[in-house]
């Protein structure tokens, strides 16, 4: 029997492409050419499954125009903002994603941002690389001790809780803010705040781990930043839209905030040029989950889901 046909829109890690090629008649994209909806519709002719990526917008019209042979849509991401899920449901097209597997790598990145920002790591890096380092001095590049500080986690989902677990290993006292209090087991000693004011006042270090969207748009604005303790450190490894960039830049410039670490930006891959003029920011290009281990795990879970649908089984990573 011929293998089912799987369209993979972008170049994926070698182990994942090898698995796809073993199990499917896989249509790969080794040049990693970006695909638009029209490309996908063309390339999906006769395909049994499509594995897409978050850069591709699959709106209702595109979903409706997918060939009837396509029985499952996978996305190489946790989020599915780029897919019209209602249109998929209307068409009876199951969608599978990559939940859970990004949490630790993303949380790891948040801790990196907190530590590197608080300890002025990139300023130190630039000093060393520039060749202008004149030696150790007792007051040179003094940062903020992370160990033993109060950490505020905004958004206590899987990633936020993972950040909390890592932070506890640094002797940090964890506070969190979310729409509802979580169970004592998930809390694991973290202190819930019912309102922003007490949460912000407690957050010597603030880690943003909430989802994007309108409900949280520019949550970290000038008014809330002012309620953080003087000298606080902010890390955003979640969504660029959570932050009012102008307000954050102003607070970093006037010294109310000691430092910030950012992996995500409103309007990325562009970013507010004001950040590039600051010394006290650590900037990463949205690579929070970018580890080989995580990308392999993402590829495996989404292929598991596609395998399951095509075999007539219920996938555990079905988007509902």
């Amino acid at each position: 029997m011929a293998k089912p046909v799987l369209l993979i829109t972008r170049h994926l890690p070698p182990a994942i492409e090898a698995r796809a090629a073993r199990d499917y008649d896989a249509r790969l994209n080794p040049e990693d050419t970006p695909r638009v909806a029209a490309d996908i519709l063309r390339l999906a002719q006769g395909a049994d499954a499509v594995l897409c990526c978050p850069a591709e917008k699959l709106d209702g019209a595109t979903i409706g125009a997918l060939p009837a042979t396509v029985k499952v849509l996978g996305t190489f991401s946790v989020g599915y903002d780029h897919i019209d899920i209602a249109a998929c449901r209307a068409r009876g097209l199951p969608v599978v994603n990559t939940p859970d597997v990004l949490s630790v790598a993303t949380a790891e990145c948040c801790m990196l941002l907190i530590l590197a920002a608080a300890r002025r790591a990139n300023e130190g890096e630039r000093l060393v690389r520039s060749g202008t380092w004149t030696g150790w001095a007792p007051t040179q590049l003094l940062g903020t001790l992370v160990s033993g500080r109060r950490l505020g986690v905004f958004g206590f989902g899987r990633i936020g809780r993972e950040v909390a677990r890592m932070a506890r290993a640094f002797g940090m006292e964890v506070h969190y803010r979310d729409v509802a209090r979580v169970s004592a087991e998930l809390e694991d000693g973290a202190i819930w705040h019912e309102d922003d004011d007490s949460f912000l006042a407690a957050s010597e270090m603030l880690s943003l781990n909430a989802p994007g969207g309108n409900a949280t748009r520019q949550w970290l604005n000038a008014e809330r930043i002012a309620k953080l303790p003087a000298g606080a450190v902010v890390a955003n490894g979640a969504r660029g839209t959570l932050v009012d960039d102008e307000a954050l830049i102003a607070a970093l410039r006037d010294g109310h905030l000691a430092a910030a670490g950012l992996d995500v930006y409103d309007g990325e891959p562009n970013l507010n040029p004001g950040y590039l003029k600051l010394e006290n920011v650590v900037l990463l290009p949205h690579l929070g989950s970018a580890t080989r281990e995580t990308r392999d795990a993402m590829g495996n879970i989404v292929l598991d889901g596609i395998d399951a649908v095509l075999a007539g089984r219920e996938p555990r990573n079905l988007v509902r």
């Binding site: 070698p14 080989r292 990308r295």
Partner: peptide, 28 residues
């Protein structure tokens, strides 16, 4: 492990392009 020097250099150079899913991967 997470290639922070290279990531910072990308940002300081202005970034302006997304990465492929197998590109610039670090070690977890």
């Amino acid at each position: 492990c997470r290639r922070a020097h290279e990531y910072d250099a990308i940002m300081r150079a202005g970034w302006r392009r997304g990465f492929g899913l197998g590109e610039m991967l670090g070690t977890r």
